[in-house]
């Protein structure tokens, strides 16, 4: 079967305060009409700063949260319409790994039991011995000693815990994994180990990743394509090298210039954005970035007309003036 593995159309996720006596406040428009595709064996990175909605996208498409509206097709199946049992079956195909290596493992469960959980739930092993064997093989695959199976999570470092979380996700042999900031909480040297592991696993198993991150330098090591989010919208998407070498949206340019490069000789001029991120419950009208934009051509149009993603120089960019470079500093 060809065609993309996952197609997401017009995904919307709003959070309203719940409860009988909760004040009626404007909903938080975390994700506000997001569309993208992920191909087989492909990594799409969803990049943005806190509050841009990237994690909500990840959690919604694997139905850990219910979407407000929109559609998602996974291997042709409409995910958001699945009833309980077909949804459980889908869990074998789509998995998630988390950012926080501490909260993502049950402190009262051995490593072996954590990794075996998916095997147990989906009855993927006929005997206890077979289950044990598979757990050992999974631990080995993520670079851990199989003897760790009988230990508890608190005995392990952040990087090791992250590997355990990866083994747990792999246990059900998924085709697609949402990686929700999987290396953000790790030290640099360990971060590189986990990035390499994820790359190896992708190659070996033909996995597809939705890689959610805030660090463009990390993303560059693993993503085939990048989608940049700002206040619930994708504002630019392009193949990785295109986006990094020729960013078309002013926000992408600012984000890129803010990445600290460990090289004193190559200190690029920085674009320092002014002001704070507006509240996602009352995003600015028109282009959501206009309140902080530094594009020389920015105009009344930006304040009133929402720019749509459109092809510009090999990227898709949601800026009315994407043809003109926003800043001579950008590259």
């Amino acid at each position: 079967m060809s065609g993309p593995l996952l197609v997401v159309r017009d995904l919307v996720k709003h959070y309203t305060s719940e409860g009988l006596f909760a004040a009626r406040t404007a909903p938080v428009r975390a994700v506000d009409g997001v569309s993208f595709e992920v191909g087989r064996g492909e990594t799409l990175a969803l990049v943005g700063e806190s509050g841009c909605g990237k994690s909500s996208v990840g959690r919604t498409i694997i139905r850990l949260q219910e979407p407000t509206s929109g559609e998602a097709l996974f291997e042709g199946q409409a995910i958001f319409r699945l009833e309980r049992e077909p949804l459980r079956a889908l869990r074998r195909r789509m998995q998630i790994i988390f950012q926080d290596p501490y909260s993502s493992l049950n402190p009262r469960m051995t490593v072996g039991d954590a990794v075996a959980e998916g095997i147990e739930i989906h009855r993927l092993a006929r005997t206890k011995a077979e289950r044990k064997e598979r757990v050992a093989a999974l631990l080995e695959e993520v670079g851990l000693d199989p003897s760790y199976a009988s230990r508890y999570p608190h005995e392990f470092s952040g990087g090791q815990r992250q590997r355990i979380g990866i083994a747990r996700a792999l246990a059900v042999e998924p085709a697609f994994i949402v990686c929700d900031e999987p290396v953000s909480a790790l030290d640099v040297s360990v971060q590189a180990q986990v990035i390499n592991l994820l790359r190896d696993l992708q190659e070996r198993r033909g996995l597809s990743y939705l890689f959610i991150a805030h660090d463009l330098a990390v993303v560059r090591q693993i993503a085939h394509r990048i989608a940049v989010m700002y206040l619930g919208h994708i504002i630019e998407t392009a193949p990785t090298e295109t986006l990094l070498s020729d960013p078309r949206h002013p926000y992408t340019q600012a984000l890129l210039s803010a990445v600290p490069e460990p090289d004193p000789t190559a200190q690029r001029a920085r674009i320092v954005l002014s002001g704070d991120l507006p509240s996602p419950s009352s995003p600015p009208p028109g282009c959501r970035f206009h309140t902080r934009c530094f594009h020389p051509l920015r105009s009344e149009r930006c304040r009133s007309e929402v720019p749509l993603l459109r092809p510009v120089h090999g990227s898709l960019a949601a800026c009315h003036y994407a043809e003109t470079p926003a800043s001579p500093l950008a590259h």
Partner: peptide, 23 residues
């Protein structure tokens, strides 16, 4: 080793060369 581990925006995107093991 630290320098080898740092992902960068420029240069090759081959495998990173992390420091083996944990602190």
């Amino acid at each position: 080793g630290l320098f080898g581990s740092i992902p960068r925006l420029t240069g090759a995107t081959g495998r990173l060369s992390p420091i083996p093991g944990n602190v």
